[in-house]
Design a protein around this nucleic acid. Structure first.
Lengths: 213, 213
DNA sequence: TTAGAATTCAGTGTTTCTACTGAATTACCG
DNA sequence: CGGTAATTCAGTAGAAACACTGAATTCTAA
């Protein structure tokens, strides 16, 4: 039997999973934790094969927990179990060492299936999201050709413009740069994003989600 | 005993609630539904005293379901049970006829308490959110006093700036106005919105939803 | 280690914005 | 009808933005 633990701050979810797996012959629930601290204690006593992990945790976020886990307990396969049906988090979680990504509106069969998958070191991603990821990446390459690649500095300056409405002078002061330098970066931003003034810059940045990465 | 039904598209939540209320002597779970259609069928057979309602449902949203319910079955007290800890949805749901608003990371005692409240026709709102609502409404009255009222022309010009990234010259040409006129309107916008450059203007306009009316 | 990218900064104009004051001409509300 | 708000426009002037070219360092990845 596959030994599974779960980390989620909601009693309801904990109880729900417990109920679903109660009489299961393949999967055995060996631990239920409501916080990272509880989990840490629990792992000292009993190490599961698979851990169900909720992304949204107040304070601690799922990504950092996943990173911490896969470093400290690399043997444990992590299966993200979450409400977010956007592809946005999937890649982040995968990079953080998660082996599977499952939505919470799942049924017993899918749940067990996903657990078995990650237990066997196979990837499991919610089918709907998998498709979405593929179509998104295709669309991205087709539609734009490419997302303009901005350098670290350019992004930093773009962020100050968009988020703090800073003038070139203010940016220069804040970053200890010459006014000319800032204007230079700014000029390059204009070229890369094909706009002719800050207003366009702000719009384009928001539209393309340039400040996320 | 208070008869309670629940509508939620997630098996996990359904099971979780079932488990939590299993041996309860005050509350009795009489129905579990995964969609509006199922609920509709179920209500014909057995009408509960209280309905636990999830806001986020694919397709059908919680607000419209709540509205529909309080019209068709006004006797049923609705208790919203949701993940959203923003005040944004609370007022909407309350207007839609919901009697209580509870977050899903609740424990058994709170849940039963909330159910009992709404059963007795009392309002129950998540304490944390209640506070937040109060402080927000206070802040609103203190900080802004009012949403700056823009004139027709001002809104028109603001729209051109935000949506088309137009310069004053371009706006002047488009509206057959003198450059000076446009700059004058622009200056008034800056004053009314208390910003010092276009970037701030765009941000404020979007933030305050000034282009909607 | 070496080419290419990134970062930094200056020079030189032109254009646009920002900050006001003041005032004439509608427009609208009571 | 009368007054307040809205719209229009001009003048003045300094600040900032915009449009490049060029070039010296410094990072960085092959």
């Amino acid at each position: 039997m596959i030994r599974v633990s779960i980390l989620d701050d909601q009693y309801i979810v904990l109880n729900g999973i417990q109920q679903m797996l109660a009489d299961n012959t393949i999967v055995q629930l060996t631990g239920m934790y409501r916080s990272k601290a509880e989990l840490e204690e629990g792992l000292k006593v009993e190490e599961p094969d698979v851990l169900l992990l909720d992304i949204r945790m107040p304070g601690e976020d799922g990504v950092s927990i996943a990173e911490w886990l896969s470093e400290q307990w690399p043997e444990i396969k992590i299966l993200a179990l979450t409400n977010f049906d956007t592809t946005q988090y999937v890649t982040k979680m995968m990079q953080a060492g998660v082996k599977g990504y499952l939505l919470k509106n799942t049924d017993l069969n899918t749940l067990v299936d996903a657990i078995r998958c990650v237990y066997q070191d196979e990837q499991y991603i919610e089918p709907g999201l998998k498709e979405q990821i593929v179509s998104e990446s295709l669309q991205l390459k087709k539609q734009k050709g490419h997302i303009p690649s901005l350098t670290r500095r350019e992004k930093e300056i773009l962020r100050l413009i968009v988020r703090e409405h800073a003038s070139s002078k203010e940016i220069a002061d804040k970053l200890f740069l010459s006014l000319r330098t800032v204007e230079s970066h700014r000029y390059h931003l204009f070229q890369k994003l094909d706009v002719k003034n800050v207003t366009g810059l702000v719009a384009k940045a928001l539209e393309m989600g340039l400040l996320l990465g």
